[in-house]
Protein backbone atom coordinates (compact mmCIF):
# COMPACT_ATOMS: atom_id res chain seq x y z
CA UNK A 1 0.00 0.00 0.00
CA UNK A 2 2.81 2.24 1.01
CA UNK A 3 4.36 1.53 -2.33
CA UNK A 4 1.33 2.18 -4.48
CA UNK A 5 0.60 5.43 -2.70
CA UNK A 6 4.13 6.52 -3.25
CA UNK A 7 3.96 5.58 -6.92
CA UNK A 8 0.71 7.49 -7.26
CA UNK A 9 2.17 10.59 -5.66
CA UNK A 10 5.25 10.35 -7.84
CA UNK A 11 3.21 10.03 -11.02
CA UNK A 12 0.91 12.81 -9.96
CA UNK A 13 3.87 15.04 -9.25
CA UNK A 14 5.49 14.38 -12.59
CA UNK A 15 2.20 14.90 -14.42
CA UNK A 16 1.71 18.26 -12.75
CA UNK A 17 5.28 19.22 -13.63
CA UNK A 18 4.75 18.07 -17.19
CA UNK A 19 1.49 19.93 -17.62
CA UNK A 20 3.08 23.03 -16.09
CA UNK A 21 6.12 22.90 -18.36
CA UNK A 22 3.97 22.14 -21.39
CA UNK A 23 1.60 25.03 -20.83
CA UNK A 24 4.59 27.28 -20.24
CA UNK A 25 6.02 26.27 -23.63
CA UNK A 26 2.67 26.80 -25.29
CA UNK A 27 2.40 30.16 -23.58
CA UNK A 28 5.84 31.16 -24.77
CA UNK A 29 5.24 30.17 -28.38
CA UNK A 30 1.82 31.82 -28.37
CA UNK A 31 3.38 34.95 -26.95
CA UNK A 32 5.94 35.25 -29.73
CA UNK A 33 3.41 34.63 -32.46
CA UNK A 34 0.97 37.11 -30.98
CA UNK A 35 3.50 39.91 -30.74
CA UNK A 36 3.47 40.24 -34.50
CA UNK A 37 0.08 41.13 -35.88
CA UNK A 38 -1.38 38.55 -38.25
CA UNK A 39 -3.39 41.15 -40.17
CA UNK A 40 -2.67 42.08 -43.72
CA UNK A 41 -0.97 45.27 -44.76
CA UNK A 42 2.39 46.66 -43.82
CA UNK A 43 3.75 45.61 -40.45
CA UNK A 44 3.96 48.39 -37.88
CA UNK A 45 7.40 49.94 -37.59
CA UNK A 46 9.24 52.08 -35.12
CA UNK A 47 11.69 54.83 -35.88
CA UNK A 48 13.58 57.65 -34.24
CA UNK A 49 11.93 60.50 -36.12
CA UNK A 50 13.69 63.41 -37.81
CA UNK A 51 13.75 65.76 -34.85
CA UNK A 52 15.64 63.45 -32.50
CA UNK A 53 19.11 64.48 -31.40
CA UNK A 54 21.55 61.62 -31.71
CA UNK A 55 25.06 60.98 -30.48
CA UNK A 56 27.43 58.11 -29.94
CA UNK A 57 28.00 58.98 -26.33
CA UNK A 58 26.20 61.83 -24.66
CA UNK A 59 28.24 63.75 -22.14
CA UNK A 60 28.19 66.89 -20.07
CA UNK A 61 30.71 69.43 -18.89
CA UNK A 62 29.93 71.36 -15.71
CA UNK A 63 31.76 74.64 -15.31
CA UNK A 64 31.69 74.91 -11.53
CA UNK A 65 33.09 78.47 -11.70
CA UNK A 66 29.79 79.63 -13.16
CA UNK A 67 27.63 77.93 -10.55
CA UNK A 68 25.89 79.66 -7.69
CA UNK A 69 22.97 78.83 -5.43
CA UNK A 70 20.30 80.41 -7.59
CA UNK A 71 21.44 78.72 -10.80
CA UNK A 72 21.58 75.39 -9.00
CA UNK A 73 18.06 75.90 -7.68
CA UNK A 74 16.86 76.80 -11.15
CA UNK A 75 18.39 73.70 -12.67
CA UNK A 76 16.98 71.45 -10.00
CA UNK A 77 13.54 72.99 -10.34
CA UNK A 78 13.59 72.65 -14.11
CA UNK A 79 14.56 68.99 -13.87
CA UNK A 80 12.36 67.95 -10.98
CA UNK A 81 9.24 69.69 -12.24
CA UNK A 82 9.24 68.20 -15.72
CA UNK A 83 10.13 64.74 -14.42
CA UNK A 84 7.51 64.72 -11.68
CA UNK A 85 10.05 64.31 -8.89
CA UNK A 86 8.16 64.62 -5.60
CA UNK A 87 8.86 67.47 -3.23
CA UNK A 88 10.43 66.11 -0.01
CA UNK A 89 7.94 66.74 2.77
CA UNK A 90 7.32 65.71 6.36
CA UNK A 91 8.44 62.30 7.45
CA UNK A 92 9.99 61.28 4.16
CA UNK A 93 12.32 64.26 4.27
CA UNK A 94 13.10 63.63 7.91
CA UNK A 95 14.11 60.06 7.22
CA UNK A 96 16.08 60.97 4.12
CA UNK A 97 13.73 58.88 2.01
CA UNK A 98 13.80 61.57 -0.63
CA UNK A 99 14.21 61.56 -4.37
CA UNK A 100 16.63 63.74 -6.28
CA UNK A 101 17.91 63.60 -9.82
CA UNK A 102 20.22 66.58 -9.72
CA UNK A 103 21.31 68.50 -6.67
CA UNK A 104 23.98 70.88 -5.42
CA UNK A 105 26.58 69.79 -2.90
CA UNK A 106 30.00 70.98 -1.79
CA UNK A 107 33.33 70.18 -3.41
CA UNK A 108 34.39 67.87 -0.58
CA UNK A 109 31.23 65.77 -1.01
CA UNK A 110 31.27 65.71 -4.80
CA UNK A 111 34.95 64.75 -4.80
CA UNK A 112 35.56 63.06 -1.45
CA UNK A 113 38.74 61.31 -2.58
CA UNK A 114 40.21 64.40 -4.21
CA UNK A 115 40.41 66.48 -1.12
CA UNK A 116 42.11 69.82 -1.58
CA UNK A 117 43.52 71.11 1.63
CA UNK A 118 43.68 74.87 2.01
CA UNK A 119 41.12 75.39 -0.74
CA UNK A 120 40.05 79.01 -0.96
CA UNK A 121 37.01 79.64 1.21
CA UNK A 122 34.71 80.60 -1.69
CA UNK A 123 35.81 77.61 -3.79
CA UNK A 124 35.26 75.22 -0.88
CA UNK A 125 31.70 76.33 -0.36
CA UNK A 126 30.74 77.05 -3.93
CA UNK A 127 28.01 74.62 -4.96
CA UNK A 128 28.93 71.72 -7.22
CA UNK A 129 26.00 70.21 -8.99
CA UNK A 130 25.89 66.39 -9.10
CA UNK A 131 23.73 63.97 -11.06
CA UNK A 132 23.94 60.55 -12.64
CA UNK A 133 27.27 60.29 -14.43
CA UNK A 134 25.95 58.01 -17.18
CA UNK A 135 29.14 56.02 -16.81
CA UNK A 136 30.62 54.31 -19.81
CA UNK A 137 31.16 51.25 -17.60
CA UNK A 138 28.23 51.50 -15.20
CA UNK A 139 28.38 49.28 -12.09
CA UNK A 140 24.64 49.71 -11.52
CA UNK A 141 23.90 48.02 -14.83
CA UNK A 142 26.23 45.19 -13.91
CA UNK A 143 24.40 44.68 -10.61
CA UNK A 144 20.78 44.82 -11.82
CA UNK A 145 19.23 41.33 -11.79
CA UNK A 146 16.52 42.11 -14.35
CA UNK A 147 18.23 44.54 -16.75
CA UNK A 148 15.72 47.14 -15.56
CA UNK A 149 18.61 49.57 -15.62
CA UNK A 150 20.64 49.38 -18.78
CA UNK A 151 23.01 51.35 -20.93
CA UNK A 152 21.60 52.35 -24.29
CA UNK A 153 24.27 51.15 -26.68
CA UNK A 154 23.24 53.74 -29.24
CA UNK A 155 23.99 56.86 -27.22
CA UNK A 156 25.46 55.70 -23.91
CA UNK A 157 22.61 56.92 -21.70
CA UNK A 158 22.10 54.79 -18.59
CA UNK A 159 18.34 54.34 -18.41
CA UNK A 160 15.75 52.94 -16.03
CA UNK A 161 12.85 50.76 -17.10
CA UNK A 162 10.38 51.46 -14.30
CA UNK A 163 8.09 48.73 -15.58
CA UNK A 164 10.64 46.06 -14.92
CA UNK A 165 12.38 47.23 -11.73
CA UNK A 166 11.73 44.87 -8.81
CA UNK A 167 13.03 47.36 -6.26
CA UNK A 168 15.92 45.27 -4.91
CA UNK A 169 18.09 48.41 -4.70
CA UNK A 170 21.21 46.53 -5.75
CA UNK A 171 21.93 49.35 -8.22
CA UNK A 172 21.87 51.87 -5.37
CA UNK A 173 24.48 49.87 -3.49
CA UNK A 174 26.52 49.56 -6.68
CA UNK A 175 26.46 53.25 -7.61
CA UNK A 176 29.57 54.97 -6.22
CA UNK A 177 28.05 58.41 -6.72
CA UNK A 178 24.82 58.14 -4.75
CA UNK A 179 22.95 59.17 -7.88
CA UNK A 180 19.98 56.86 -7.41
CA UNK A 181 16.80 57.29 -5.39
CA UNK A 182 14.18 54.82 -4.31
CA UNK A 183 10.43 55.42 -4.11
CA UNK A 184 9.88 54.55 -0.48
CA UNK A 185 6.22 55.52 -0.88
CA UNK A 186 3.76 56.51 -3.55
CA UNK A 187 5.31 59.71 -4.95
CA UNK A 188 2.10 61.13 -6.40
CA UNK A 189 0.67 62.90 -3.35
CA UNK A 190 3.92 64.85 -3.02
CA UNK A 191 4.03 66.08 -6.62
CA UNK A 192 2.72 69.61 -6.71
CA UNK A 193 2.22 70.22 -10.41
CA UNK A 194 2.10 66.99 -12.27
CA UNK A 195 3.53 67.17 -15.78
CA UNK A 196 1.13 65.07 -17.87
CA UNK A 197 3.73 64.50 -20.60
CA UNK A 198 5.99 62.48 -18.35
CA UNK A 199 4.93 59.52 -16.23
CA UNK A 200 5.24 59.60 -12.48
CA UNK A 201 6.69 56.60 -10.75
CA UNK A 202 5.05 54.13 -8.39
CA UNK A 203 6.24 53.07 -4.98
CA UNK A 204 8.96 50.47 -4.86
CA UNK A 205 11.04 51.36 -7.91
CA UNK A 206 14.40 53.07 -8.26
CA UNK A 207 14.83 56.21 -10.32
CA UNK A 208 17.50 58.64 -11.41
CA UNK A 209 18.50 61.21 -14.01
CA UNK A 210 17.90 60.02 -17.59
CA UNK A 211 19.83 62.80 -19.37
CA UNK A 212 16.38 63.93 -20.54
CA UNK A 213 16.13 61.10 -23.05
CA UNK A 214 12.51 62.10 -23.69
CA UNK A 215 13.60 65.64 -24.64
CA UNK A 216 16.53 64.51 -26.79
CA UNK A 217 14.02 62.41 -28.74
CA UNK A 218 12.24 65.60 -29.81
CA UNK A 219 15.37 67.63 -30.40
CA UNK A 220 15.60 69.46 -27.08
CA UNK A 221 18.62 69.65 -24.83
CA UNK A 222 18.33 68.47 -21.21
CA UNK A 223 16.28 70.76 -19.02
CA UNK A 224 19.12 71.47 -16.58
CA UNK A 225 21.40 72.53 -19.45
CA UNK A 226 18.78 74.99 -20.69
CA UNK A 227 18.32 76.40 -17.21
CA UNK A 228 22.02 76.61 -16.41
CA UNK A 229 22.89 80.01 -17.89
CA UNK A 230 25.79 78.41 -19.72
CA UNK A 231 27.27 76.58 -16.74
CA UNK A 232 26.40 73.21 -18.26
CA UNK A 233 27.45 72.13 -21.75
CA UNK A 234 25.96 69.07 -23.38
CA UNK A 235 27.08 67.13 -26.42
CA UNK A 236 28.59 64.07 -28.05
CA UNK A 237 31.81 63.00 -26.34
CA UNK A 238 32.76 60.88 -29.35
CA UNK A 239 32.50 63.79 -31.78
CA UNK A 240 35.75 65.82 -31.76
CA UNK A 241 33.89 68.89 -33.06
CA UNK A 242 31.18 68.91 -30.42
CA UNK A 243 30.90 71.70 -27.85
CA UNK A 244 31.83 69.42 -24.99
CA UNK A 245 34.95 68.14 -26.72
CA UNK A 246 36.05 71.68 -27.62
CA UNK A 247 35.59 72.71 -24.01
CA UNK A 248 37.48 69.68 -22.73
CA UNK A 249 40.32 70.36 -25.13
CA UNK A 250 40.55 73.91 -23.86
CA UNK A 251 40.07 73.58 -20.11
CA UNK A 252 41.36 71.12 -17.55
CA UNK A 253 38.40 69.09 -16.32
CA UNK A 254 38.10 66.32 -13.74
CA UNK A 255 35.63 63.53 -13.16
CA UNK A 256 34.23 62.08 -9.95
CA UNK A 257 36.11 59.05 -8.62
CA UNK A 258 38.03 58.23 -11.82
CA UNK A 259 39.98 55.58 -9.88
CA UNK A 260 36.93 53.30 -9.83
CA UNK A 261 37.05 52.72 -13.56
CA UNK A 262 33.43 53.59 -14.24
CA UNK A 263 34.37 56.29 -16.81
CA UNK A 264 31.77 58.96 -15.99
CA UNK A 265 30.40 61.01 -18.87
CA UNK A 266 30.03 64.12 -16.71
CA UNK A 267 33.11 66.33 -16.46
CA UNK A 268 33.82 69.20 -14.08
CA UNK A 269 35.87 72.30 -14.73
CA UNK A 270 37.06 73.53 -11.32
Amino acid sequence: MENSRRRFLKNAGFSILGVGAGSMLIGLSAHTSKAVSPDAGQRPQFSMGDKAMEAERWGMVVDTRKLNDSICRKMQEACHSIHNVPEPVGESAQRDQIIKWIWPTEFQHAFPSQEVEFLAEDAAHRPVVVLCNHCDNPPCVRACPTRATFKRERDGIVMMDFHRCIGCRFCMAACPFGARSFNFRDPRPDIEDENPDFPTRMRGVVEKCNFCAERLAVGKKPACVEASDGALTFGDLNDPDSDVRKLLAEKYAIRRKPNLGTFPSVFYIV
Binding site: E91, S92, R95, D96, Q97, I98, I99, K100, G167, R169, M172, A173, G178, S181, F182, N183, F184, R185, D186, R203, G204
Partner: peptide, 15 residues
Protein backbone atom coordinates in the same frame (compact mmCIF):
# COMPACT_ATOMS: atom_id res chain seq x y z
CA UNK B 1 0.45 48.89 0.58
CA UNK B 2 2.46 51.89 1.76
CA UNK B 3 5.92 51.01 0.49
CA UNK B 4 9.25 50.50 2.19
CA UNK B 5 8.85 53.97 3.67
CA UNK B 6 7.62 52.32 6.86
CA UNK B 7 11.16 51.00 7.43
CA UNK B 8 14.12 52.96 8.70
CA UNK B 9 15.95 52.62 5.41
CA UNK B 10 16.78 55.72 3.47
CA UNK B 11 18.29 57.03 0.29
CA UNK B 12 21.74 56.48 1.75
CA UNK B 13 21.22 53.28 3.73
CA UNK B 14 19.29 51.34 1.14
CA UNK B 15 19.68 47.91 2.67
Amino acid sequence: YFGLGITGMSRDVTW
